[in-house]
Design a protein around this nucleic acid. Structure first.
Length: 582
DNA sequence: ACCTTAGGCGCG
DNA sequence: AAAGCGCGCCTAAGGT
């Protein structure tokens, strides 16, 4: 059963209609005031457990969440369209001609704000074809029509089961992302402020540098004999370094570390603290942390490979330096789970390289560290060497230690290396490559193709460089993108199992107090970083959630790859504080 | 008064 | 220890 949700004919309303799986209406279209949408959706959810179909999850779900409503499943038409428009699996289905152009992204629908009055936002990811730009939000008929077109595209594609799984995982991911944003990461503002005070000094008034940062700038100016130096200006800085006899080509930290000079230490210290101050300092705290929660915004499918991106506050770039401020509420813990060596394992699965798969198991068949296994098979037991080699193969290294180690890997695992090599060659020719479930690279631009046909020697070199660069991109795309699909399925399976858990008993083992009004605590996913998920979990449910995290990993692997002699083990840390994970 | 690009660095 | 993939955020600097 589907439940279609779209904007109503007049402002401040929505329209809901049930449809059977064949698309036939199962109820009349009902117009509901936005103020009453939460209860209305809850009623339909309880009665039918439908798949909610809407233009974008990011547009509709925040309103439902703030009304206390969570739905089981959805179909996000915008995200699915974005996949189908590019997917090589659906290239000959005619979907591209039938797809309805999407309206530009808008702010989420809110109670009290007319949808028609919303400001149009950026729409770079979901650009409608220029010839037929849509402006108005989709009505019910458009939602129904687009759903039909997408279902037809999947069924007539070259891999219907894989594409169907990809679209449902992407849609489930969209629900997870909005729920994570809504919950936020537990954040101890007091601890964060203490950290800033210890490292930087008191919060500066006006736009001054904090005390300790200014002191380091002073030391740096003295050491370089440059009294007017602005350490934030790379140009200014490189000139001062050259005058002091430091012949660095850039001012990057890793390069400066090679030089012995009294200016280097204060400069590196300044860099580190300056980053903390500008990116994760008092301003960040005031902008992104409210009521003890860090609320950022996830952008599902925001990366070409299908990975999520984030917007505002940097939810996926929280530096180790401040993770000590992410602390579970009293009576709770953070369960931090990450998939071990996800991308190399994905490569072994994609290429069906049984030799590489065997490197991730011991003689009894238990999962072991894949890098260590590879090191034992061919790098004299040196794990870091094996890791550099394997990442080099996935990224396309040609120089340095990494590039030198790749040939050894190619002798050990010809199937795996051949798989990424084929992806690279296809990319160099300007072809499209696809993940296992069918997300494909965007087509090359006309400029790229024109460049490949260039004549002069200089243009030729540029064209070859561009081809190699695209080859590295497509080589990495198949692995990174399939890893993102695995992670998305993992999240979806985890979400389903968390929802199915019985709530924590209010009393510790005793009979529930019938008159109790206490809110029953449930575990919530609060962060996701490509191959790592964080659950804020009541103490009484740690064992359940830990078990579920592992089960979900196995379920995701089977969903995507079926039965296979390779697992995707998950490392789980149960901690008070994010800094203690791993 | 904005907008874009480059340099640098945080994360996976 | 090295510089190969994907991002977001901040500042400086140069453009319109």
């Amino acid at each position: 059963m589907y439940a279609l949700l779209a904007e109503g004919p007049e402002g401040s309303t929505a329209v809901v209609q049930l449809r059977h799986d064949d698309g036939k209406p199962a109820s009349d279209a009902r117009t509901v005031a936005l103020a009453a949408l939460g209860p209305a959706v809850q009623k339909v959810e309880d009665a039918h457990h439908p798949r909610w179909v809407w233009e974008r999850t990011a547009k509709w779900y925040p309103l439902l969440l703030s009304a206390g409503v969570r739905v089981e499943k959805c179909h996000d038409l915008a995200l699915c369209q974005n996949i189908l428009l590019h997917s090589a699996f659906a290239a000959s289905t005619g979907y591209n001609q039938r797809a309805t152009p999407l309206p530009p992204e808008t702010d989420p629908v809110r109670h009290g704000l007319s949808p028609a009055g919303q400001q149009a936002g950026q729409d770079s990811l979901f650009d409608a074809p220029a010839a037929n730009p849509a402006t108005a939000a989709w009505d019910l008929a458009t939602v129904a029509g687009e759903l039909g077109a997408q279902k037809t595209a999947v069924h007539s594609s070259t891999h219907p089961a894989r594409l169907a799984l990809l679209l449902s995982a992407e849609s489930a991911g969209a629900l997870v992302a909005e729920e994570m944003q809504y919950e936020g990461i537990p954040w101890r503002e007091d601890l964060h402020r203490r950290l800033l005070n210890d490292l930087l000094g008191p919060k500066p008034i006006n736009h001054d540098r904090p005390e300790k940062l200014e002191a380091l700038a002073g030391q740096l100016r003295t050491a370089l004999n440059a009294p007017a130096l602005n350490p934030d200006s790379p140009q200014d800085l490189i000139r001062a370094l050259h005058r002091a006899g430091i012949e660095a080509k850039s001012t990057r930290s890793w390069e400066l570390r090679e030089f012995k000079h009294p200016a280097i230490e204060p400069l590196l210290a300044y860099r580190k603290l300056s980053r903390l101050f500008t990116t994760n300092g008092w301003g960040w705290l005031e902008q992104w942390v409210r009521d003890g929660r860090f609320h950022s915004e996830y952008v599902v499918g925001g990366v070409v490979s299908g990975r999520w991106a984030s917007r505002g506050g940097g939810a996926m770039q929280i530096p180790a330096q401040i993770r000590s401020a992410a602390v579970a509420d009293p009576g709770h813990v953070l369960i931090v789970a990450d998939a071990a060596q996800l991308e190399p394992r994905v490569l072994a699965a994609l290429a069906q390289d049984s030799a590489m798969a065997a490197a991730g198991r011991d003689s009894e068949g238990n999962n072991t560290d894949l890098y260590a296994g590879i090191a034992a098979q061919g790098f004299g037991g040196d794990r870091s060497m094996a890791k550099i080699a394997l990442l080099g193969a996935i990224y396309g290294s040609t120089t340095g230690e990494s590039g030198r180690l790749v040939p050894q890997l190619a002798r050990m695992y010809p199937r795996a290396l051949n798989y990424v090599e084929q992806a690279a060659r296809a990319g160099e020719r300007g072809e499209r490559v696809s993940t296992y479930l069918g997300r494909s690279t965007p087509p090359v631009s006309q400029e790229w193709l024109d460049g490949q046909r260039s004549s002069s020697a200089q243009e030729q070199r540029r064209a070859e460089s561009a081809a190699r660069s695209r080859g590295r991109f497509t080589r990495n795309f198949v692995v990174q993108g399939t890893a993102a699909e695995w992670a998305c399925c993992w999240l979806a399976e985890l979400r389903r199992r968390l929802r199915a858990l019985p709530p924590t008993p209010p009393g510790a083992g005793g009979t529930p107090d019938p008159g109790a009004t206490t809110v029953q605590e449930a575990p919530h996913m609060v962060a996701f970083l490509h191959d790592e998920v964080m659950v804020h979990c009541p103490l009484g449910m740690v064992d359940d959630v830990t078990r579920i995290v592992h089960e979900s990993s196995r379920a995701a692997t089977e969903l995507i790859f079926g039965t296979m002699p390779l697992e995707f083990p998950v490392n789980v840390s149960v901690v008070q504080c994010y800094a203690d994970a791993k």
